[in-house]
């Protein structure tokens, strides 16, 4: 039962991810990306990682997608204004993507058969257990996150705000 759900979800994830790449309309791409994120959320639920599932649902499906749609609205998408790339550039892109594929393939080949070790209990992904770990063992990284968010705030304001002086 669990396995068949996993295969169905994996199939949908890959399908929607391919649709993101292949659809011509960028807004459609973004909407397919929402569906991809949703299937990934379902994967987290299957792995019993409930906190990650919620974060993926709220932050990625909600907030990040809003940002992507906003970013699209900055671009002038009215007509097909995208210029044709020169052949040399296409050639370079194919080589770069091929190299990436080789690297990913080599990295995957080096991992040994998907043996997962070191998981203490089945409940580690639940919100309560995760909170205990986060606020005891990983306290410093947690506090540093706030500094990261602070710098992101300052950076966004500096980039987007025109100085009135």
């Amino acid at each position: 039962m669990n396995q068949s759900v996993f295969y169905l979800l994996s199939f949908m994830t890959v399908l929607f991810a391919l649709l993101v790449v292949f659809s011509k309309n960028p807004i459609h791409s973004a909407l397919y990306m929402v569906l991809t994120f949703f299937t990934i959320t379902c994967h987290y639920v299957l792995l019993n990682a409930q906190f990650l599932a919620i974060v993926n649902f709220i932050v990625y499906m909600g907030a990040i997608m809003v940002l992507i749609l906003f970013a699209m609205m900055f671009l002038n998408l009215g007509k097909d204004t995208e210029p044709q790339k020169p052949v040399l550039l296409k050639f370079a892109a194919v080589i770069a993507a091929g190299l990436l594929l080789v690297t990913i393939f080599a990295a995957l080949k080096k991992t040994d058969g998907g043996q997962i070790t070191g998981i203490a209990s089945n409940n580690i992904g639940l919100v309560k257990e995760l909170g205990k770990t986060l606020f005891r063992d990983f306290l410093l990284p947690f506090e540093i996150i706030s500094i990261l968010l602070l710098s992101a705030m300052v950076g966004a304001v500096l980039l987007a705000k025109r100085d009135t002086k």
């Binding site: 906190f51 919620i54 974060v55 709220i58 932050v59 909600g62 907030a63 990040i64 809003v66 940002l67 906003f70 970013a71 609205m73 900055f74 671009l75 002038n76 009215g78 919100v127 309560k128 995760l130 909170g131 205990k132 986060l134 606020f135 947690f142 996150i145 706030s146 968010l149 992101a152 705030m153 966004a156 304001v157 987007a160 705000k161």
Partner: peptide, 30 residues
């Protein structure tokens, strides 16, 4: 038509505070 960058600033600030509130969730449970 392209829109103003001000909307994006509001959106990105919303995302940052959204991420902040996410961390309060495991905290509130414990």
């Amino acid at each position: 038509a392209p829109i103003s960058i001000k909307y994006f600033l509001v959106a990105i600030l919303f995302v940052l505070f959204d991420v902040e509130v996410i961390f309060m969730y495991p905290w509130a449970v414990n």
